[in-house]
Design a protein around this nucleic acid. Structure first.
Lengths: 277, 277
DNA sequence: TTGAGCGTTTGACTCAAATCAATCGTTCCC
DNA sequence: GGGAACGATTGATTTGAGTCAAACGCTCAA
């Protein structure tokens, strides 16, 4: 088999991958695809398993294909805080650092596409397009992390619970249709354990329980079971959450192509700071 | 003047810049330096001025040369929350997005090196090394943002104040010596207004005042004036803060070369990423 | 010198949410 | 069927920290 066929073959594994729509693998370039595919492999990880330990070696990086990963750190006093949740299409791991600042664990049973970090870095070195895609993904993760730190310090726990429900429903709608569904009656599936939700929202399971029942009592949601909640009044839920559509949108997955859509869309605009050198 | 001289001239403006040690401009490559210099210019901004408005056009990006910038968002109810503080050497602004997710304002009188965003992006497109440096900076900003969200949701306000003092002192020591000073008796200079500190730590000026006086009462610090605090017992302060050395280190500036030290620490000028898998 | 203006400190009060604790409901296994 | 194990709920209590308000101290200008 010739080199061209080799590349095409490897690349196919990526282009046919469901994650390539929203992940950093979503690149038009076949050669890049082949480069990633050559060092990557699919793996199943059971819920609760640690993929990368906080403070441990940053051995692998990769993409979530299915399930939910949590990025967390356990404090000296034993409490664990989840600083980020990663969904299918999200990149995980840390590049260009020897040791992990945070742990990466499976919040549910997950399927990942993983690569040796150094090998992946070498692919990045050969494919600027890939590095660009990763920069975009990292930039977005930064915006999300800052938005979360905003939520944590400014919102009440009720507002956080409401926001989480909205984001969860929004994510599902987003995945189903690509656009916001006209009907906003939707079911939020937690997916992760109640204690993980509590850790992510910086609160306790008791408080979450109270707020969920409060929201049901007010007729805003319907508790179907411990993991499923039907949103009856999305507008009311959003007004309780106190966040704008815009801010909610930050949490939604965005196709890689869309992230840089404005890059060449218009010519240079005027600089407000009136630049001279 | 020939082309070579032109490049050398432009590049000199960057290589001689004090920020190039810790900023994304810290690149060995003269051509890249020249590319950045060609689109960048120095600017003074008075304290309180807005450089980029939240939701506004992401018109410029750049590097802090002196002073402190704040990255913030004002909530619908009028309260402002600072999600990040940027010090000399830090990159500011958002790349590859049309509108700003957060505002960027001068917390003190600042000097910046700014560039039109689109022009800068085009430099990035021509210089993968620059994009790589920016990826490293963004990755670090992400780790810091997550660490902050950890502090906000897990630590008491007293712990946050203690952590802030430690980080402030540490940053000064860091800048002075490049390494940790043997003596840990140091003076923390707030630099920014008390209300900015409060906003950054997710608390109020009253609470900060109380905790500072509590720490003085306990003999851990000495209040010199409203902006200067001598740390008398750094170990005790750290045990009150309840954070590890490692976590504190995340907040310290790191030379760009050092950030990727595990990759090509030996030869800075060689083409990056020639690692085999 | 005086007083306006601003930021800081201090005190009193309130409240959201954590903590502690008991109960309930499942599931699963002997 | 019984009961251990686990998670979710509900209640009672405590507390950290925000809010409100008053007093203090400093700077600056008339």
């Amino acid at each position: 088999m010739g080199q061209i066929e080799d590349i095409a073959n490897e690349a196919n594994r990526c282009t046919r991958c469901s994650a390539s729509v929203t992940s950093v693998c979503g690149l038009s370039d076949l050669v890049t695809h082949a480069g990633i595919a050559a060092v990557s492999g699919r793996r199943f990880v059971a819920a609760g398993q640690t993929i990368l330990a906080s403070g441990g070696e940053a051995a692998v990086v990769g993409t979530v294909l299915g399930g939910i990963l949590k990025v967390s750190k356990t404090l000296p006093d034993g409490r664990e805080r989840i600083v980020s949740l990663l969904y299918p299409g999200d990149f995980f791991g840390q590049l260009f650092t020897a040791s992990m600042d945070f742990a990466v664990e499976a919040a549910t049973d997950v399927e990942i596409c993983a690569a040796n970090r150094l090998a992946y870095e070498s692919v990045i070195g050969r494919h600027p397009k890939l590095e660009h895609a990763i920069l975009l993904a990292t930039s977005k993760a930064l915006a999300v992390a800052r938005e979360i730190s905003l939520l944590l310090s400014c919102q009440t726990t009720l507002e956080r619970v409401a926001t989480y429900l909205l984001v969860t429903v929004g994510r599902r709608d987003h995945l189903l249709s690509g656009i916001r569904l006209p009907t906003r009656n939707s079911v939020a599936t937690l997916g992760i354990s109640r204690s993980d939700v509590a850790s992510y929202l910086g609160t306790t399971i008791e408080t979450i329980s109270r707020h969920l029942h409060y929201l049901e009592h007010k007729g805003v949601i319907l508790i179907l079971d411990n993991n499923h909640f039907e949103v009856l009044d999305a507008d009311r839920l959003q007004s309780i959450a106190g966040v704008s559509d815009n801010d909610l949108g930050l949490f939604m997955p965005a196709p890689v192509a869309g992230m840089s859509q404005d890059r060449h869309s218009h010519t240079a605009t005027v600089l407000p700071l009136h630049l001279t050198k």
